[in-house]
Design a protein around this nucleic acid. Structure first.
Length: 588
RNA sequence: GGGGCCGUAGUUCAGCGGUCUAGAAUGCCAGACUGUCGAUCUGGAGGUCGCGGGUUCGAAUCCCGUCGGCCCCGCCA
């Protein structure tokens, strides 16, 4: 070992010891005949002190060569700092190491950005020099927290009898769902593997193989456009269980999250989480990923405004439209200028504008004031979420448009509506099994085609498939979907029926999923599971705005790795061996 | 496929109703300094204002295109 201690380890108890340290030169403070060097590794910073009185001339001369981010090893004596020079900001602040000798293990060029400061650096540079970015405290902390969190997850699952099993990365393309990344097969010219969008089918097969509790920290790949919370490759905590129902999975995940989050972060997790039905979520929040930190629910105000004399609203109602709205509890947070902005936003979304009533005790302020008689106001005051100094916002029009526009509106007001920054988990349940894809003119699965319908809805499959509910559940944290799962189909005939409903004919589904169908005939137990987006979850727990802050080597929005410059062109020979011809129109 | 924002010393930014011979801070280089920890002080170097074209007597600044980064819609079973 080149070192006896790390740079975060020494304290007053080590005074007098001769130690060896290794690390990066964090900063040098040169006072002429007295130099301080902060030596850093991932455990902390230790101050090295040296003066020409204390070291031999050769060492003192060589010290002049050292610059920031040089890697050095050194030997020295731990000494107590003079009382008035103790640094309370660092764990090693009570001591310093008096230099005896040192060695430069490697030099460092002039840096593209300052590793020692917390200054915001453009992400382009951070990604190109990721190894320097990683030396910075904030990003280092993120990766360490992620590691700790994953460890806690494994610990919990191990304690609960789960077996961690790896599934293939080179697997079969199944065109349902996201676009696949494909890999040519040299041994099978013209054929391709696909990278897994998730280990879905393998984990079901594992259930059939008798591993009734499986998990994996699984890499998944989807060739779709990137977002702040979406990367082409990402990691899921993938779980599957046999002989269980929805409540077992939900309760397992609640306990898993409580254990792992409380162990890793200073965050309290209260379980069980609230459950909201899909339809209710859409109706009250305009989305199936509601952010319950905002204390806001949409209400149908059509009946109330029917009685008002406001012509615009009356016309909307007569045409079959709806009036929906919501209260902002603390109306003082919203200025007339803000309302102006919201009004413009609604107009840009295709509406006439936003209606509003600001309550000030008995008084009100509203563009519709003269049409709002006491009985209507009294009805409004009876509504849930009313507060004497709140504002009611409302909007009329076609029901779905109203809901979506209200949802977009509360997103704009988000920072005024979130009262405390907590972590708000919610389950969304009772999803429909299918939805209609207008573009492709066909029925498709809301989750995936292996999701089981509710027992009581099976008879609806033939006549009214869109009314069938799924045994599926999504988990949402602060308005972001962090996971989802379902009870799966474990009977061949039901699975075949679902394939047919989503428009796969027998030839196709046998070719794509024949192996699954066959396995279902060999004693497939009832089973189900869930997948939790690890990068996203950690992102939220860390308070980060992008998933890239939780991934060591992420890609840019164009899917490029700025560190390695992937993707790149490959050797002609490799293309030949894989029987691939490139067909790109080169611009001239 | 579409919409928006951004691109100026190594870095973070200012300048953008045309005059800039492009500034600041920090970093870098040289020198001074025995208690600093964002050390301090003195001096210095450092820029094809992403790239290409246009308008203009004159463009970092206005216009068009292009490249790159970010955010969003579509897409993500």
């Amino acid at each position: 070992m080149l070192r006896t201690h790390t740079c975060g380890e020494l304290n007053i108890k080590n005074v007098g010891q001769k130690v060896k340290l290794c690390g990066w030169v964090h900063s040098i403070r040169d006072h002429g005949n007295l130099k301080f060097i902060d030596l850093r590794d991932r455990y902390g910073v230790t101050q090295i002190v040296c003066s020409p009185m204390e070291v031999n001339e050769e060492v003192w001369e060589k010290l002049k060569e050292i610059k920031n981010e040089y890697v050095i090893s050194l030997e020295g004596i731990v000494v107590k700092r003079p009382e008035e020079t103790v640094n309370k900001k660092i764990s090693t602040g009570e001591i310093e190491v008096k230099l005896v000798s040192f060695e430069i293990l490697n030099y460092c060029k002039s840096l593209p950005f300052d590793v020692g400061s917390n200054e915001k650096i453009s992400e382009t540079l951070r990604l190109k020099y990721r190894y320097l970015d990683m030396r910075r405290e904030s990003f280092q902390r993120n990766l360490i927290k992620r590691s700790d969190f994953v460890f806690a997850v494994r610990e919990f699952l191990k304690d609960n009898n789960f077996v961690e099993i790896e599934t293939p990365i080179l697997t079969k393309s199944t065109p349902e769902g996201a676009r696949d990344f494909i890999v040519p097969s040299r041994l099978n010219p013209g054929k391709f593997y696909a990278l897994p969008q998730s280990p879905q089918l393998f984990k079901q097969i594992l259930m059939i193989g008798g591993f009734d509790r499986y998990y994996q920290i699984a890499k998944c790949f989807r060739d779709e456009d990137l977002r702040a919370d979406r990367q082409p490759e990402f990691t899921q905590i993938d779980i599957e269980m046999s002989f269980i129902d929805e409540n077992d999975i939900i309760s397992l995940v609640e306990n898993l999250l409580k254990y792992s989050i409380e162990k890793t972060f200073e965050i309290k997790v209260d379980i069980p989480f609230r459950r909201i039905k899909y339809e209710e979520a859409i109706d009250k929040y305009g989305t199936d990923t509601p952010d319950l930190r905002m204390n806001v629910e949409f209400m149908d105000l059509t009946e109330i405004f029917k009685k008002s004399g406001v012509m615009i609203l009356k016309e909307i109602i007569d045409k079959g439209g709806k009036i929906k709205g919501f209260f902002v509890k603390d109306g003082e947070k919203i200025s007339l200028k803000d309302i102006e902005e919201y009004n413009d936003f609604v107009k840009n979304s295709g509406g006439n504008g936003i209606g509003w009533i600001k309550f000030k005790g008995e008084e009100i302020q509203s563009p519709f004031k003269k049409y709002l008689k006491e009985d209507i106001l009294n009805d409004i005051r009876e509504l849930p979420y009313y507060s004497p100094k709140g504002i009611l916002f409302f909007l009329g029009g076609e029901k779905e448009w109203v809901t979506i526009t209200l949802k977009n509106l509360i997103d704009k007001m988000k920072n005024k509506l979130i009262e405390e920054n907590k972590f708000s988990f919610v389950w969304i349940v009772d999803f429909p099994l299918f939805e209609y894809n207008e573009e492709e003119q066909r029925i498709q699965s809301v989750h995936h085609p292996f999701t089981s319908p509710r027992e009581e809805d099976i008879e609806l499959l033939d006549k009214e498939p869109l009314k069938v509910k799924a045994r599926a559940y999504d988990i949402v944290l602060n308005g972001i979907e962090i996971g989802g799962g379902s009870i799966r189909i474990n009977k061949r005939n039901l699975q075949e029926k679902i394939f047919k409903i989503i428009g796969l004919n027998e030839n196709i589904y046998l070719q794509r999923f024949g192996f699954l169908l066959e396995s279902l005939e060999y004693g497939a137990p009832p089973h189900g599971g869930i997948a939790i987006g690890l990068d996203r979850l950690v992102m939220i727990l860390l308070g980060e705005e992008t998933i890239r802050e939780t991934i060591a080597f992420p890609k840019t929005q164009k899917g490029v790795c700025l560190l390695t410059d992937a993707p790149n062109e490959v050797e002609e020979q490799l293309l030949k061996e894989n029987r691939i011809k490139i067909d790109i129109q080169k611009d001239l």
